[in-house]
Simulated scan of single mutants.
Amino acid sequence: MTTILVTGGAGYIGSHACKVLASAGYTPVTYDNLGTGWRDAVRFGPFEHGDLLDRARLDEVFATWRPSAVMHFAALSLVGDSMKDPATFWRANVGGSLNLLEAAVAAGCRKIVFSSTCATYGDHDGVILDENTPQQPINAYGATKRAIEDMIGNFGQAHGVRSVIFRYFNVAGADPEGEIGEFHQPETHLIPLMLDAIDGKRSALTIFGTDYDTPDGTCIRDYVHVMDLVEAHVLGLKWLEDGKASRVFCLGTGSGFSVREVIAESGRVTNREVPVIEGDRRPGDAVQLVSGSRRATEELGWRPERSTMGAMVADAWRWHQNHGAHFRE
Rank of each mutant, 00 (worst) to 15 (best):
A75Y: 04
N139K: 07
V259T: 14
L237E: 01
T144E: 04
D150N: 13
L76S: 02
D123A: 11
I277N: 13
I198C: 06
V234Y: 01
G256K: 00
F47L: 14
M227Y: 00
R202N: 03
V171F: 05
G252K: 01
P275I: 10
D123K: 11
N322E: 15
A147N: 05
D175T: 13
K201R: 15
S115Y: 03
I191Q: 01
T27H: 08
L58P: 01
A174R: 02
G126S: 15
G11R: 01
M1Y: 09
V29F: 04
H233L: 14
V20I: 15
V6N: 02
R146H: 10
E149V: 10
G267M: 05
F169N: 08
T270R: 08
V234D: 08
P186R: 11
E299C: 08
E278N: 14
G126C: 14
E305K: 12
A311W: 08
E182F: 13
T36C: 11
V262C: 12
A22V: 03
V262T: 10
Q136F: 11
N93L: 10
K19S: 11
H124G: 08
V234Q: 00
A140R: 01
T297Y: 00
G126K: 14
V171M: 12
H189F: 10
L52A: 09
L237R: 04
P134F: 08
M151L: 15
F327I: 10
I263V: 15
V287H: 09
V94R: 04
I165K: 02
A296H: 08
D285V: 14
E131G: 07
V262N: 01
D125G: 12
E182Y: 12
E177H: 12
